[in-house]
Computed example of a mutant assay.
Amino acid sequence: MSRPPEPDTDTDIGTDIGTDTAERLRQALGPVTVTRDTALGGGFANSTRLLELADGRRLVLKTAPPESAPALTYERGLLGTEALFHRLAARAGVRVPAVLHHEPAGPRAPAEWLLLSHLDGTTWDAARDRIAPADRAALRRELGESLARIAAVTGPAHGYPRPAAGLSAPDWPTAFTAMLHAVLGDARRFGVALPAPDGVLADLPRRFGRRLAEVRRPALVHFDAWEGNVVLGRTGDDRWHLAGLIDGERAFFGDPLAELVGLDPLGAAEDDPDLMAGYRSVAPLPALGPGARTRLALYRLHLALVMRVEAAPRAYGGGFATWLDTWSTGRVTEQLAVLDALAPEA
C-alpha cells in the first residue's frame, strides 16, 4: 500500500482519559503503578495510550469517543469487536495483543474502553524502507499464514459481531447488503456526495447475489491488516519476523476473500505470490474465477465508500481529505466497471 498524505483532523476525535487511567487499571488489574503514560498516534477513531508499569509490563489502553460523538453505523462498539477478534485470533494461533479487560459504555464508563498487552516492535509501514526484498517475501508469507489461520475461525452468523447494530444475518448476501446499505445511509446522514448514484450502489448486492451466495461459512476477517496494523520484530541475527497483528476493530464474519481487500486497500493483494503462497500453505482460497473476482470488486467498492464517508464524522481536512475524495471516486468508478464487465458471467 503506497503512502497517501497524512490525515489532518480539525477536531480531537479521541477521548483524553487523563485522571481515569489509574481507576481503569485498578478495575482490571488491581493496584499497579504507572511510571509512564504516552499518547500513541496512528489511530483515527479511538484514543490510544501506552502505559508502562513499575513491574515492567507495557500495556495499551484504548478509549472510544463518547456515545454522542458522530460515527458510522458499524463503528458503535468497535472496541468490543476488537476484543473479540483478538481472543478468537489468539485461539487460532495468531500473534495478537492479549485482552486484559474490556468495558462497554455504561453507568461506570461514559465511553467504551479496552486494555491490551503491548506488542513490542515496529509497524511494517514504519519499517518499510529498511526491509530487504528477501525479508519482505518471507514476511508476506508469514502474513498470509496468519490470515489463513484467522479465516479458519467460524462465527455464529455473517456480518459484524454486534447483533444490536442490525448488520448481521444467517447468510452472507443478506449481511453484506445490510453492511453496504448502512454506509450509503451514513453518506446521506452526513451529507457526503457519492461517486455513483445511490440506487446503482444499493442494487449491487441484489444484482450479484448469486456470487455472494457462494460464501456459505462465516469466516473471521480482520479487514484492516494493512502494513500500519502489522507489527514486526527482529531476531538476534537481525532478520525481520512477524510480531503480530493489531487493531481488529473492523473485523467481521464473512467471505475470507475480503481479507485481501482490507490488507491492501489501494492495490490487489491477490497478485502477491508470496502472500498467496503463505496463505495456501495453511488453507485453500477459492480459485480467482468470475465469482471470486466479482466479490473482490464488491468488497473494494464497499471499503472505498467506508473510507470516503468516514471522513465526515472524523473531520479530515487538508491534503488527505482531497486525496481521499479523488481516490475513492476513482476506486468506485473502477470497480463498477469491473462489475459491469463481469456481469454476463455473474
Rank of each mutant, 00 (worst) to 15 (best):
A169H: 04
Y299D: 12
L50P: 02
L78Q: 12
T33Q: 13
L204G: 14
S328A: 15
A202T: 14
I131C: 04
A83F: 01
P161C: 10
D135K: 00
T73A: 12
L242G: 01
P65Y: 01
R26Y: 04
V60C: 13
D8F: 00
G318C: 02
L59K: 01
L301C: 08
A187R: 07
A292I: 09
T15K: 01
L260V: 06
G155F: 02
L257S: 11
P163K: 05
S2R: 08
V231Q: 01
L88G: 07
F223P: 07
L53Y: 02
V231A: 01
P218L: 09
D16N: 06
L119P: 04
T81Y: 01
F208Y: 15
D255Q: 12
A277D: 14
F44H: 12
E142L: 04
P4S: 03
L232P: 01
H86L: 14
V221W: 06
A341M: 10
P313F: 10
P173A: 13
A22C: 03
L288M: 15
D271N: 13
H118E: 07
F44K: 03
T21Q: 04
G80S: 09
D10G: 13
P161I: 11
A157D: 06
T322F: 00
L180Y: 05
R108K: 04
D55C: 13
L201E: 10
E67Y: 02
R207D: 13
V183W: 02
A98R: 15
D12M: 10
R108W: 00
G166F: 08
V153S: 10
G278T: 10
L139W: 02
D247T: 02
V183C: 03
A213T: 13
D237T: 15
A169R: 04
G43R: 00
E259Y: 06
R36I: 00
D20R: 12
G41W: 00
H102C: 03
V221E: 07
E52S: 12
A151Q: 12
R331V: 10
L263W: 05
G93F: 09
D55V: 14
G14R: 03
P170W: 05
V282R: 15
D274L: 03
T235V: 04
L201V: 11
V32Y: 09
A283V: 08
R162C: 00
R189G: 03
W172C: 10
A343Q: 15
A283C: 08
L303Y: 10
V153I: 12
T19L: 05
V99C: 12
V309W: 12
E249D: 14
W172M: 09
L204A: 13
P7Y: 05
W323T: 04
D10I: 06
G267Y: 06
L53S: 05
W113P: 04
G166H: 08
L167F: 08
D274T: 05
G236A: 15
L336R: 04
P313G: 07
P286G: 14
A22H: 11
L232I: 00
P133Y: 06
H302L: 08
G267C: 06
N46G: 08
P65W: 02
G248E: 08
E345K: 13
E345A: 15
G155H: 03
P65L: 02
A92P: 13
Q335K: 14
R24Q: 06
P70Q: 07
L301I: 05
M179G: 10
E82R: 02
L296W: 12
S117Q: 04
P205I: 14
G254N: 06
P97Y: 06
P313T: 09
P284Y: 06
F176L: 03
W124F: 10
Y316D: 14
V99Y: 11
D186K: 04
